[in-house]
Design a protein around this nucleic acid. Structure first.
Length: 280
DNA sequence: CAAAGCTCCTGACCGC
DNA sequence: TGCGGTCAGGAGCTTT
C-alpha cells in the first residue's frame, strides 16, 4: 500500500532512467487495471519524450511532450521494477503481473507490476489535470504551506467522523494512508476513535508538524533504500521500515514510560493500530 | 451535505 | 497436497 513517501521514492528511483528520455517501446499486457487503459495506449506512448516526472498525492505524473500527462497510481500492490539495459529481458521473461513495460531510448526498462490491480494508468491533457475526475477534489499536499493548523482546524471542526477517517480522506489532505495515519496519531497521542470535532485546538495544531515529520522521515528512509538500486536492479514500491504501531498488535507500546500494549481495532473495515493507554 | 457501505483483485495464510 | 474461507486495503461510486 504505497503512500506518499513510497510514491516519492518510486519517483526518485525512476527519474534517472526515464526523465528526459524518449520511449522507444511500450508493451501493454492487459487491457485494463483498475480502470480500462486508454485506447491505443502503447501506440500513443511510443516515441514520446518524458520531459519531467512529478508526484501529486499518491499519483506519479509523467509529463510527456505534446502536453499530455501519463497518470499512474500504484494502488495497493503496485510496484516498478527497474531493469538496466545491460540486463535486458526477453519478452517471455516478464512476470505474471507485469502489466506495462516502458523502454527508454537507452534501453532501460521500467516495468509496472501490480498483482491486485488496484493501480491504474491513464492519459490526460496537461492543461486539464486539475479538472480531471481523479484530481478535482483533492485536498492539499501535507508537506506544502496550504496544509497548516488553521486549514486542518477548519476541517476537524466540521466533522463528526473519527479523526482517523478524516485524515484518510484525500479531500481533506492527500498522501496519507492507513499506515502513516496510525503512526501520526500515535506520535500525537490522539486516539484514532476520537471524533475530529472533539480535538482541541492544540491537538490539531500539533498534528500538522507531526504528520509532516512522519512523512518526511519515511521519505528519507526511502532515499537510503534507493542507494541499493543505484547499481542493482530491483523493485520499487512498498518498503517496510520501522513502524511504531502499525502491525504491532499485542506488542509493548514504545512510548517511554507507557506500559500499554498496542491494540488492533477495525474502523470502516480497516485495521487501526494504537495504544489505548497513551492515545486518548 | 456527511457518513457509511460496496466494490474492484490476488496472494498469503490457516484449518481440515 | 488440495481446498475453501478469511484477510489485506486505496479510493471511486452508491446508498442512506
Amino acid at each position: 500500500m504505497p503512500e506518499l513517501p513510497e510514491v516519492e521514492t518510486v519517483k526518485n528511483g525512476i527519474i534517472p532512467l526515464l526523465a528526459g528520455r524518449r520511449l522507444v517501446r511500450v508493451i501493454q499486457r492487459r487491457d485494463k487495471l483498475r480502470i480500462p487503459l486508454p485506447d491505443n495506449f502503447a501506440e500513443r506512448l511510443r516515441g514520446r519524450r518524458i520531459e519531467q516526472i512529478t508526484r501529486r498525492a499518491k499519483y506519479l505524473l509523467f509529463h510527456l511532450d505534446g502536453a499530455e500527462i501519463l497518470i499512474c497510481h500504484l494502488g495497493m500492490s503496485g510496484k516498478m521494477t527497474l531493469v538496466a539495459a545491460k540486463d535486458r529481458l526477453t519478452p517471455d521473461e516478464f512476470e505474471k503481473h507485469d502489466h506495462i513495460i516502458l523502454e527508454s531510448d537507452r534501453h532501460d526498462l521500467v516495468i509496472f507490476n501490480d498483482p491486485r490491480r488496484f493501480g491504474l494508468m491513464t492519459l490526460c491533457p496537461a492543461g486539464e489535470l486539475d479538472q480531471h475526475a481523479l484530481f478535482r477534489h483533492m485536498g492539499p499536499e501535507p508537506l506544502g504551506n496550504e496544509f497548516n493548523g488553521d486549514y486542518l482546524r477548519g476541517k476537524t471542526k466540521k466533522s463528526r467522523s473519527p479523526v482517523k477517517n478524516l485524515l484518510l480522506n484525500q479531500r481533506v489532505v492527500v498522501g496519507l494512508g492507513n499506515i502513516y495515519v496510525c503512526e501520526a496519531l500515535f506520535l500525537a497521542g490522539i486516539s484514532p476513535e476520537k471524533k475530529a470535532c472533539d480535538l482541541s485546538d492544540d491537538e490539531v495544531e500539533n498534528l500538522v508538524p507531526i504528520i509532516r515529520d512522519v512523512l518526511q522521515r519515511a521519505i528519507e528512509a526511502g532515499g537510503s533504500t534507493l542507494k541499493d538500486y543505484a547499481r542493482v536492479d530491483g523493485e520499487l514500491g512498498y518498503f517496510q521500515h520501522e513502524f511504531r504501531v502499525y502491525g504491532r498488535a499485542g506488542e509493548a507500546c514504545l512510548k517511554v514510560g507507557c506500559n500499554g500494549e498496542i491494540t488492533r481495532i477495525i474502523q470502516s473495515n480497516r485495521s487501526t493500530f494504537y495504544c489505548p493507554r497513551c492515545q486518548d
